[in-house]
Amino acid sequence: MGSVTLQFLQQIVNGLSLGSIYALIALGYTMVYGIIKLINFAHGDIMMVGAYVGWFATTTLHLSFLPALVLAMMASAILGVLIERIAYKPLRNVIRIASLITAIGVSLFLEYGGMLLVTPQVRTYPPVFPDTIYNIGGIIVKYGDIVMIVTSIILMVLLHVIVQYTKIGKAMRAVSFDTEAALLMGINVNNTISATFAIGSGLAAAAGVLMGVYFNTIDPLMGIIPGLKAFVAAVLGGIGIIPGAMVGGVFLGLTESLVSGLGWSTWRDAVAFLILILVLIVKPSGLFGKNIREKV
């Protein structure tokens, strides 16, 4: 019995650390969605670009971890703003599905453009965190796990503060609530949206670098699956809601770990999607979402 409890607790730890990775990606996802209601399928690929910039900075430029992280976040922020200006902005006022197709296009471009540029070969990150392992009564926690969980909580709080209490955050909320009205009230909508993309993409890059460090390997297609999972996490928590992304990510991570822990690892993704659908059916706007009936 003791061993079962131990296994269960270990799976909770595994799930928390996996979930914080999803949450980290989902934060940026949900922010971008919140403001322009666009499922930015390229988010996972921006994360990949961030991971590569970080890798390049640490291996070729021999930067230490923090400068590399900052560089990756800045590069991705610029990339995110560029993508928004070039690909999404012209489509802001036409049917939403066109922007979605554009997002798919951008995503393909980053994946396969990246493959051309850096080859599909797996790259390995140099070790950044110490290899310390804590054994707490049989439950094993890695140094990296703690970094991941702490980072995602800090970023979530930071983001929440930005959105709720700063001027730019207020502008973001205004644009998200009613773009036209925000414009009439003198808010620079374009700049606000660009700022959102910059922050969202910077967060993606942070997630990418952390993922690269944590899992040791990066490749040009690394963004697809985590991107999809993060999107699921964001919807699960209520898309557009920052604490929701965190809760959704952790919930998804825990679900996956527990399903795998029961020996159904191959059904893991199916169970995750099933839970998502059930949640949506019961509460169509996600766990934390406000239920608004769309009006004409």
């Binding site: 070039i86 690909a87 012209p90 489509l91 066109a98 922007s99 197709i101 554009t102 798919i104 296009g105 951008v106 995503s107 393909l108 471009f109 994946e111 396969y112 453009g113 493959m115 051309l116």
Partner: peptide, 16 residues
Amino acid sequence: EWRLVITAVLLVAMMI
């Protein structure tokens, strides 16, 4: 190697 990159660019341009 270029197929999907070209497709992606055309797709984005087309939509814009």
